[in-house]
Design a protein around this nucleic acid. Structure first.
Lengths: 210, 210
DNA sequence: GTCTATACAGCGATAGAC
DNA sequence: GTCTATCGCTGTATAGAC
């Protein structure tokens, strides 16, 4: 069992995770090796194994840290008392921030490689998406009840729709090296949930560039 | 240059491509080896190298064959004189067929691994998506002109939106082993393009299950 | 906690016989 | 067109000194 634990942000373990995270998000879990991390950090492979005995341990730690950060970013959005449409925009912006660093969503990348992952990583990936879905479903429910969001079907299905589209938009934006593709997709996705009276000006403009 | 060429469907090269295609769609290009194909076909790795000297050659052949088939399936849809909304449904169904075999779209998988691919494969992946986008944009334009489809913004942006959502829905459906997730997402996506008068009954039902 | 050194399997790829 | 045999390299992982 690998409970989610914190990593001293200056410690070696955290620096290993930083480098590994970038490598997975850019190249995939099957696309990098301990040697890549070692050379980047100028330590030896053996030192890496001291911190993460086997690659699966490193992978699980990676997902757990990523999920913890992501979920806490969502909690922060909840803390700021913004209306549901702005929460959705903030959610999409979390994705955009990842893409701006030329990375894929960590768990989106791992979703592609899912069948090759050790069991613990698979479960952690699914948990990540389940938590995202729950958070979004809550925002959507509040928004619909309050009249600031409009959509057909169940909260849960709409939440899944949003995750699908944002992950897909990230996936497609990277081969084109084009963040604006993502922005346009996100904007028009969210516009579909927003009654005209509550459109977010910045995003609506991005959806249909002048 | 690797011009798109045909493969005798009974020949060894074609059988190699069949196995490799499945492996890439399930495990990714970095997730399988020549040894995997060899053992499946009960030939040696050396024999594989006779047909595809280096792995990049195999990869390009894979994409080109896949693209040829996919585009010809689209041409077939065009041949049947169905209305634009049905063409979109047929397009989504091509994705569903892939997913039903527990596979990811070949080029969607390669999009995730994009940064690790040899140049020729990268270009072939982008071409695949460009062709998809063009086909969809044509359908969307016809549909809007004829009044059977309704959407905001440019044909091209709407086409990208559809590709994003379908690829994302495939990506997410696989970890959950749940094709119905994809069906629901595709149905509600297409419903957003379809005026009420032209809803496709089967799909609309799937979007909001009873 | 990091090192040197190494084990050992797997990888893509090649040479040369048949 | 397929084989056996092998190469050189990289992969994950370990042992044991410091």
């Amino acid at each position: 069992m690998t409970a989610r634990r914190a990593y001293d942000s200056a410690g070696t373990a955290a620096r290993i995770l930083d480098v590994a995270e970038q490598l997975v998000q850019v190249r995939g879990f099957n696309g990098f090796s301990y040697a890549d991390i070692a050379s980047e950090l100028k330590i030896t492979k053996a030192a890496l194994h001291y911190h993460f005995a086997v690659k699966a341990d490193l992978g699980e730690a990676l997902i757990n840290r990523y999920a913890t950060r992501f979920i806490s970013a969502l909690a922060e959005v909840d803390g700021s008392a913004v209306p549901p449409p702005a929460k959705l925009a903030a959610y999409a912006d979390l994705y955009a921030q990842v893409l701006r660093r030329r990375r894929m969503c960590l768990c989106g990348m791992l979703a592609a490689e899912y069948q090759t992952l050790p069991r613990g990583m698979q479960d952690a990936v699914v948990s990540f998406f389940d938590e995202n879905e729950s958070w979004l479903a809550g925002v959507l429910r509040d928004g619909r009840e309050g009249g600031s969001l409009r959509f057909a079907g169940a909260d849960r299905d709409a939440a899944r729709m949003i995750i699908n589209c944002l992950e897909g938009a990230m996936l497609m934006a990277r081969p084109y090296g084009d963040v604006s593709r993502f922005r346009a997709a996100a904007a028009s996705l969210l516009a579909g949930f927003t009654p005209v009276t509550a459109q977010v000006p910045g995003l609506a403009a991005a959806a249909q560039p002048a």
